[in-house]
């Protein structure tokens, strides 16, 4: 079993100076680049990312790269905010706290969670990049009442900020409560701002615009330790299982919520990690998650035989009336 790297406090800039050249060459020569070139294929298997937790040093390069790459998508709310009716509707304003990087916010779609755990009797700090899991059958997309979210064939899910009304349903149905709301921005301002809607929800869109150009997401490209790898889900799973076997490790995201497009590999069991990380608002857990859409999928199958039930009832009616006639 490979010993996980102990997290050290390294200046973000200082680290970048020393590693940017190496990172660039790795990106150009590894599977990441190969994945990037395959991203433009029309019909493709959904893409997944592999996050090797052992490699993460918590430098937050990915966090700042994400912010830089997505800055133009961030909300610029109009103030003062419309008066909400009824007053219980919460105003959520992160526009004055854009610098927050220790949780998910409308201005921070990726953050680093820290876990102090014991491995082979040794106390180590593991750092874990956290963002949207990009579920294979995402409840946020499927259950949005306005179609404001979309899932693309490459597996990413994203929120259309021009359509979102900020009702926060996507956050409530997300097993990890990932989407975050900013009040005072979006379509609701042009409709009934006091009575319906409350801004726009934001989350990682896996740099869809970069993927469209054949580039990899910013967090992957910038990572000096190559913590993340992107590629077709079946290949990523194969790699993840091989890695887990090699390090006698554990996998998260393969089966959670029916399967996701983010696969974590850790040297420590995820229930142990889950107890060690800080969870709460904007800080997702690492619990096991059942398939939230499974009941609906089962009922959808039952819907196929609903007409047969109607036919059966009719046959029963004819049978009874024939019996009565006799």
């Amino acid at each position: 079993m490979t010993t996980p790297k102990i997290t050290s406090n390294i200046s973000r800039r200082a680290f970048l100076k020393g590693s940017i050249t190496a990172a660039g060459s790795v990106v150009a020569t590894t599977g990441i680049a190969r994945a990037a070139t395959s991203l433009t294929h029309e019909k493709q298997e959904p893409l997944a990312t592999l996050i090797d937790i052992r490699k993460c040093i918590g430098c937050e390069e990915c966090v700042y790269a994400c912010q830089a790459a997505n800055a133009e998508k961030y909300p610029e709310p109009e103030k003062p905010f419309p008066k909400m009716v009824p007053p219980r509707v919460p105003v959520e304003d992160w526009s004055e706290k854009r610098e927050v990087t220790d949780r998910l916010t409308p201005y921070n779609w990726l953050f680093i969670q820290t876990a102090s755990v014991t491995v082979n009797g040794e106390q180590i700090d593991l750092t874990i990049p956290r963002r949207c899991m990009h579920c294979a059958n995402p409840p946020c997309v499927k259950l949005c009442p306005w179609g404001a979210l979309k899932q693309e064939e490459n597996g990413l899910s994203r929120i259309d900020s021009d359509l979102c009304l900020g009702g926060s349903k996507c956050k409530k149905v997300c097993p990890w409560d990932v989407p975050q709301r900013q009040t005072g921005v979006g379509l609701y301002l042009d409709l009934l701002p006091a009575l319906a809607g409350n801004g726009v929800m934001y989350k990682c869109d896996r740099c869809y615009n970069r993927l469209e150009k054949g580039e990899v997401p910013a967090c992957i490209e910038v990572c000096p330790e190559n913590v993340q790898t992107i590629g077709p889900r079946s290949e990523i799973l194969k790699t993840a299982h091989a890695l887990a076997r090699e390090i006698n490790g554990y996998i998260y995201g393969e089966h959670e919520n029916g399967g996701t497009h983010t696969i974590y590999v850790s040297p420590v069991p995820f229930d142990q990690l889950n107890q060690a990380i800080e969870t709460g608002k904007g800080k997702p857990h690492l619990n096991k998650v059942k398939n939230m859409m499974a009941d609906g999928t089962q009922l959808a199958k039952a819907m196929l035989i609903a007409p047969l039930a109607g036919i059966a009832a009719l046959v029963g009616k004819f049978y009874l009336s024939t019996k009565e006639d006799k």
């Binding site: 259950l143 349903k169 409530k172 149905v173 939230m292 009941d295 609906g296 009922l299 959808a300 039952a302 819907m303 609903a306 007409p307 039930a309 109607g310 036919i311 009832a313 009719l314 009616k317």
Partner: peptide, 29 residues
């Protein structure tokens, strides 16, 4: 509770489709 209303909606839809099929065929025959 969105998952509860989702399941109720689907269940009611199953009943409605069965009923519509029944009424439609009953009406035709």
């Amino acid at each position: 509770q969105f998952y509860v209303t989702h399941i109720i909606h689907y269940t009611a839809a199953i009943v409605l489709i069965a009923l519509v099929t029944y009424v439609l065929l009953d009406f035709l025959f």
